[in-house]
């Protein structure tokens, strides 16, 4: 029982991290109808920038304070991600308005290649450490309930907490601020939003900025777990089933979908994987999403698709 609970909790934690990346997809898809395959590259780019600036800044300024270095590095990385977002809107999306979905998809793939390449050209391609002082040691919980208790990685716990805070902040931003209202209006109907004077171009820049921030948060958390390295860009592929399962248009759905996928992956790997040779978690998530799609083509929380001729 305690082993089952441990697996379940582990799944919930990694699910929280998936939903962080999935959020980036959903935000951009909702606001501009673009399925952003470059989200993984953005996570990698943000993580690399964070890792390298936290190394370079103390060198340049000749200081020895880890906290200040991290803070400055985060600030610089935020600026970098804003610049990336602005350039993507300015140089790419602006010219591709009204193109087919497939063309836009390919364009974001191109952006992804570009970011992968330039990130590793500028920042280098080794494995870099991100040290933001995440606690590493595991703790034991609920010893009174179970024999031996359950072992939890404190790092996962902190990461899940940060992810939850980010989601909360995003929800408040979307529901309570005027920019958030404008974003939701654009998501509902581009033309109607434009007709009441919401500047579409600026909204898209803002959305990409927000997606850049979520990429940065995801990059820092994943990066301090695994190190900032090329394989981070594949995290996006792990998060894709999440958005499909929960629907491309729902922010809370991305969170719940992330938790479902996270738990499903871990449980399947532990309880089914040993029978078929292991390593099934990567496609199991996709199969899970596929089965859901067969019954609900719009995903669990997506808007209903209505056919018009």
């Amino acid at each position: 029982m305690s082993f089952f609970l441990e697996t379940l909790l582990g799944g919930l934690m990694s699910g929280m991290l998936y939903s962080l990346v999935a959020l980036g997809f959903v935000l951009i898809y909702k606001a501009s109808g673009v399925f952003n395959f470059a989200q993984g590259a953005m996570v990698l780019f943000a993580a690399l920038s964070m890792a390298r600036f936290s190394e370079w800044i103390p060198e340049w300024l000749g200081m020895d304070n880890l906290f200040m270095a991290n803070l400055l590095a985060i600030a610089v990385s935020v600026v970098v991600m804003f610049a990336v977002a602005w350039m993507i809107e300015r140089l790419v999306l602006r010219h591709l308005v009204n193109q087919e979905g497939a063309t836009l998809l390919m364009a974001t793939l191109g952006i992804g290649y570009f970011l992968d390449g330039i990130g590793q050209t500028v920042f280098g391609s080794d494995i870099y450490k991100i040290d933001v002082g995440m606690p590493k040691e595991p703790v034991t919980m609920l010893e009174s309930v179970f024999d031996g208790g359950i072992l939890i990685n404190k790092e996962d716990f902190v990461a899940a907490f940060i992810a939850a805070m980010l989601v909360l902040a995003l929800t408040i931003f979307f529901q309570k601020t005027s920019t958030g209202r404008a974003l939701r209006a654009v998501a509902d109907d581009h033309q109607a939003a434009q007709s009441i004077g919401i500047p579409l171009g600026r909204i898209w820049v803002i959305v990409w900025c927000v997606a850049g921030i979520t990429a940065l948060v995801a990059g820092i958390i994943w990066g301090s777990k695994l190190g900032a390295q090329f394989s981070l860009s594949t995290v996006a592929l792990r998060a894709l089933p999440v958005v499909i399962l929960s629907g491309l248009t729902s922010v809370p759905g991305a969170i719940i979908g992330g938790l479902i996928i996270g738990v499903g992956e871990k449980l399947s790997e532990v309880f089914l994987g040993s029978y078929v040779g292991g390593g099934i978690e990567i496609w199991f998530a996709y199969m899970l999403a596929l089965v859901v799609l067969l019954f609900r083509p719009q995903g669990l929380f997506g808007e209903k698709i209505i056919d018009r001729v």
Binding site: L96, E100, M106, L109, Y113, F114, Q120, T121
Partner: peptide, 24 residues
């Protein structure tokens, strides 16, 4: 060699985006 391959990927991505914009 590593740097060449990174620059290659960068230019490849940029060219793809460029082509999509010029002739979708």
């Amino acid at each position: 060699v590593a740097l060449v391959s990174h620059i290659e990927v960068t230019v490849f991505g940029a060219l793809i985006v460029f082509f999509l914009i010029v002739e979708p």
